[in-house]
Amino acid sequence: MTMQLMFYEDKAKNLVEQYTLTEEQLRYTKSPKESIALAKQDNSRHAILAMDGNKLVTFFVLHEKEGVTPYSSNEQALLIRSFSTDFYEQGKGYAKTALQLLPDFVRKHFPSINELVLGVNVPNRAAQELYKRCGFVDEGRQAMGLRDELKVMSYYMKEVEN
Rank of each mutant, 00 (worst) to 15 (best):
H46T: 07
R45V: 01
N162E: 13
L49H: 12
N162W: 07
Y156L: 10
V152A: 05
Y8R: 05
E9P: 04
K55N: 04
V120L: 01
M153F: 06
M6I: 15
A127P: 00
D52C: 05
E159P: 04
N121I: 00
F7M: 10
D148N: 13
Y156P: 04
T58R: 05
S72Y: 12
L15R: 12
N54Q: 15
F83L: 09
L99Q: 07
I80S: 10
A12C: 13
A98F: 08
L5Y: 10
F83H: 08
S35Y: 07
S82A: 15
S82F: 01
K158W: 00
V160A: 12
V68H: 05
L5P: 14
A50F: 10
A50Y: 14
Q90Y: 11
A77Y: 07
S35D: 09
V160I: 10
T29I: 10
N124E: 05
T22P: 02
A77P: 14
N74Y: 02
K158Y: 01
G119C: 01
N162A: 10
N114L: 00
L99K: 07
R125P: 00
V137N: 07
T22H: 01
D138Y: 09
Y71I: 08
A98Y: 14
A12I: 03
N124G: 01
V61L: 00
R133C: 00
R107H: 13
M1Q: 11
G135T: 09
T97S: 02
K92F: 03
T69E: 09
H109P: 02
Y8A: 02
S44C: 13
N162D: 12
V68G: 06
A126G: 05
Y155H: 11
D42S: 08
R27K: 15
H63M: 07
V16H: 12
T97K: 15
V68A: 05
P111M: 02
G67N: 14
N14Q: 15
L146R: 11
E159N: 13
L26D: 03
D148E: 11
N124L: 13
Y8V: 00
R133Y: 08
K151T: 15
E9N: 06
F59N: 03
Q142L: 04
A47E: 03
R147D: 08
Y88D: 06
Q128D: 05
R125G: 08
